[in-house]
Design a protein around this nucleic acid. Sequence first.
DNA 1: TTACTTGCAAACGGTTTGCATCGAG
DNA 2: CTCGATGCAAACCGTTTGCAAGTAA
Lengths: 132, 132
Amino acid sequence: MTQRRNTSQRAIITQLLAGTDEFVSAQHLHAALRTSGSTVGLATVYRALQEMATGGDLDVVRNETGEVLYRQCEQPSHHHHLVCRTCGLTQEVAAPGVEKWARAVAEQYGYVDLDHQVELFGVCAGCAAKRA
Amino acid sequence: MTQRRNTSQRAIITQLLAGTDEFVSAQHLHAALRTSGSTVGLATVYRALQEMATGGDLDVVRNETGEVLYRQCEQPSHHHHLVCRTCGLTQEVAAPGVEKWARAVAEQYGYVDLDHQVELFGVCAGCAAKRA
DNA sequence: TTACTTGCAAACGGTTTGCATCGAG
DNA sequence: CTCGATGCAAACCGTTTGCAAGTAA
């Protein structure tokens, strides 16, 4: 049985994530921590983020360059994202029908252990206005 | 004005892509080429794929591990994929409700110029059987 | 004391780039 | 002959891992 220990590093990482509702990369988070005086190691940041993500405490997304982004997840229920491809503004959205559809399709083809990736990209109202 | 030269390498890459309607990674494509006797370099494959992708001749997707996948694009009807995360077997599936849902959500939040990414991952019947 | 955590550095895996050489036009 | 294309190897970059030292419980 694995049990999590409370360390100052994890506390500060959790705290920093709680302070924002935007997606951040492990690298960015690490840089921010070092800048503010902490001596946390990069590996520790990665390990903490992974742990929190698999524990369901963080939302995980990948940006266009393949970098992994994390954000504290406000909604306990499963949901997806609508991301502005210009400024990164993100809305959490529910996809009621999608889950059911995914299950039906998987069953039809005999696939099990299903997971799905559903993300919407667009340009938010603000950015669209500036573009005009 | 940049002009493309016709080389045997590009010809064989184009030909191989034309022979399938599945997504392939640059690495996979390169391995396949080497196996079939070609001496193409990895870099050449990457350069060719990038060029074709920016030229709009290929669809580009990223899998769960961040690897970039390419596929010849000319699919008449829009559809999505159900990919086996063990063996890579891919089924093309239609997502009737998804498109409508995406449009509705985007409108609700004032997002325009919408695009979406919907991929299903699971373990196909064959791989599931071997696992047991 | 036990065994989970940490920081560092090295290892990794996919992708990109520098450069000398090759070859299409 | 020119200049884009190629192959190789090294460089990159984000991420993971081995390991000895540190520390919560």
